[in-house]
């Protein structure tokens, strides 16, 4: 297949994509503030992300003694950048910033980058709490990454392509979520994990004084906190493109359907993460490898058999 399925946007497309990503993430942060306020029986709360941003923009930058400032900065800057690079290959309805032939692998690459970025943010400050947080993330990543990779393979096998637009197009008749439920669930869990949301918050946990966040202040803290929301929003977008038919839907244009589905999945993930307690990495390891991995392999097997049968 060729790239005619979607239209590649001109140079300003990247600006628009990033703006939309930030708005979606902001909506999630505001919704989270509202729900938190509701749970604590106070009014308002939707203003929380704005107030937090203002507070951090006003805060003095802070380093620690003999810290690795460069690595710390690479880590915190990298998280929002990785999220932006993910959405670059994401087809929003009929438009995409970059119609990369290996878009799915690109997503996977950015996702693996998060390993390094979170760890660097933890290593940089030269503080025990941050360091423990950084290494905890690596332990989590060892548990979630393989199931995620196989979950990504399933739609690729069904579509016979690694191009995001082809994968969306292949769901013309039937959304992948219908016959790849395991892959979808594993994918959603992994999205929560790489955006450091509960139950995968051990790297930022209060028992290590905020872990990776423990020594961050000012704009660097803001970038890391925003990066989490941006990654979650980007992950939701990919969930829609890979499993929920992308922009497919009646009446409304593709981009509207795509955004609507993304917002719903995004808020759903935000709701889930409010309801579950945090898991320690070592609790996750055995279930992920011994239960999660075989299940997702079976899913890929089913998809592969169906793909071969459908062809033959």
């Amino acid at each position: 297949m060729n790239g005619s399925l979607v239209q590649q946007l001109p140079a300003w497309g990247a600006v628009a994509a990033l703006a939309v990503l930030v708005l979606v993430a902001l909506s999630g942060a505001a919704a989270d503030g509202l729900v938190t306020a509701r749970a604590e029986r106070r009014r308002g709360g939707g203003f929380a992300p704005v107030a937090e941003t203002a507070r951090l923009l006003r805060q003095r930058p802070r380093g620690t003694v003999a810290a690795d400032t460069l690595l710390r900065r690479v880590g915190v800057v990298g998280l929002p950048v990785a999220a932006a690079l993910k959405v670059a290959v994401l087809p929003v309805g009929a438009w995409v910033v970059s119609d990369l032939a290996v878009g799915l692998v690109w997503f996977n690459t950015m996702d693996v980058m998060v390993w390094a970025l979170v760890w660097l943010s933890g290593w940089g400050p030269n503080s025990v709490h941050s360091l423990v947080g950084g290494y905890r993330f690596l332990a989590l990543a060892l548990a979630y990454e393989l199931p995620l990779m196989f979950a990504l393979t399933a739609p690729a096998v069904a579509a016979g392509s690694l191009r995001m637009a082809d994968i969306v197009a292949a769901q013309d008749g039937l959304w992948f979520v219908v016959w790849m439920p395991v892959a979808f669930l594993v994918f959603c869990a992994a999205v929560l994990a790489f955006s450091l949301q509960r139950p995968f918050t051990a790297p930022l946990s209060p028992d290590i004084a905020g872990g990776v966040l423990a020594e961050l202040s000012g704009v660097e803290r803001l970038l890391l906190l925003a990066g989490r929301y941006l990654l979650l929003a980007a992950g939701s977008g990919f969930g829609v493109a890979l499993f929920l038919g992308g922009g497919a839907g009646p009446v409304l244009p593709g981009w509207a359907w795509f955004l609507a589905k993304t917002l719903v999945l995004f808020w759903l993930l935000l709701t889930i993460r409010r309801r579950v307690p945090a898991l320690r990495p070592e609790q996750l390891m055995a279930p992920a490898w011994v239960v999660g991995l075989p299940l997702i392999l079976l899913q890929v097997l089913v998809v592969a058999v169906a793909a071969v049968a459908g062809k033959g």
Partner: peptide, 16 residues
């Protein structure tokens, strides 16, 4: 703090 919607900081770096 809860009444005002303020936040408990987990480390001094986070605190005002």
């Amino acid at each position: 703090l809860a009444r005002r919607g303020w936040v408990e900081a987990l480390s001094p770096a986070d605190a005002d």
